[in-house]
């Protein structure tokens, strides 16, 4: 991720030597020289303008009473009506709490899980064992959400594998896990860890691999045990990576995986499962209440972006690590 801050220093070379020629001349000269490059860049630029900046332009329907036949520009302005409706609706508090709780829980439980797995793998000396564990634990990441949630429905059904085992081993009465609001968060976070713990450890293992071995050697000479080495060499070594990912995660605080929730939830579990993303989907796509749903989505996008900027600023102040 940190590639972003490494915006290439070499571009200064263009202005550097030719600072006497005007900007217009530079543009023409650059274009003459790099015609083909711009030709190669043009599909990507067109794509991002149309499919990413186009919707940003379309966000204005949040302030309008949008009707398909009037179009974005033709629909009448309504000011902040949609936002007022949203903030004063019964759903606002509920989906905000659900969204934030799911994000916080995954920050508390899922995020450290990847770090812990990386640290444990790092302690394994037998490289074949390490590689095998890595291969197996990365794999669930590539299984589709539909299959993962489908397997959950099957295993967690009243007569499913999990209930059968709980019943025969511990005598627990069958629980309809997927139809209990109280279980939703646990299942969402737990299955997320199952699917992604291996994958998220890669990044930390890669960071561990870049730590200078001589630091470990020095620590060993000073009599540091393996545990002390982990605490005082490995963890500080991967701290910048952890911080970058933490910033990104905070920026994603409101963007919990609504695709997975859409597969998992049902009206019985809405009270804990309904989040901003799923609500936007139901209001906008199912009920075709476009302007209102766009307002909900815009609220989400703005808060997320603000959180990202704050997290980045805080990290900038407190450590050297930053996203930009």
């Amino acid at each position: 991720m940190a590639v972003i801050e490494k915006s290439n220093g070499s571009s200064a070379g263009i202005g550097g030597s030719g600072s006497r020629i005007s900007f217009g001349q530079r543009v023409r000269k650059d274009f003459a020289k790099n015609k083909l490059i711009y030709l190669m860049l043009s599909p990507a630029v067109a794509y991002f303008l149309l499919f990413h900046y186009g919707p940003m332009y379309g966000m204005q329907i949040a302030f309008k009473d949008f009707a398909i036949k009037l179009g974005i520009n033709g629909s009448p302005w309504t000011g902040f009506d949609n936002f007022v409706d949203f903030f004063s609706s019964f759903y606002f508090g509920r989906i905000l709490v659900n969204t934030i709780l799911l994000s916080l829980y995954s920050l508390i439980f899922a995020f450290p899980a990847g770090i812990v797995l990386a640290l444990l793998l790092n302690e394994v000396r037998k490289s074949w064992f390490k590689r095998t564990v890595q291969t197996i634990t990365y794999m669930p990441h590539f299984i589709s959400l539909v299959v993962v949630v489908g397997i959950m429905f099957d295993f967690l059904a009243r007569d499913g594998l999990v209930n059968n085992m709980l019943n025969s081993l511990l005598g627990i009465e069958p629980i309809a896990f997927m139809r209990e609001a109280d279980w939703f968060r646990t299942l969402y976070i737990g299955s997320g860890i199952w699917q992604n713990v291996g994958w998220s450890s890669i990044i930390f293992l890669a960071a561990i691999a870049t730590i200078d071995p001589s630091i470990y050697e020095a620590a060993r000479i000073d009599g540091a045990s393996r545990w002390k080495q982990t605490l005082h060499v490995t963890l500080p070594g991967i701290a910048p990576t952890i911080i970058i990912l933490l910033i990104l995660n905070i920026g994603q605080l409101l963007a919990v995986g609504s695709e997975k929730i859409l597969l998992m939830y049902n009206p019985i579990t809405y009270s804990t499962a309904d989040v901003i993303g799923t609500y936007t989907y139901r209001k906008g796509i199912l009920e075709t209440n476009y302007s209102y749903a766009a307002a909900v989505g815009m609220f989400n996008a703005i808060i997320s972006f603000t959180l990202l900027i704050i997290a980045n600023a805080v990290s900038r102040k407190t450590s050297e690590t930053k996203l930009w």
Binding site: A44, P55, I285
Partner: peptide
Amino acid sequence: ITFTMFFEGGLIPTFLL
């Protein structure tokens, strides 16, 4: 391009597009 990773128009405007 990078900016689109952190800010997006969202589901509904994209659908309408």
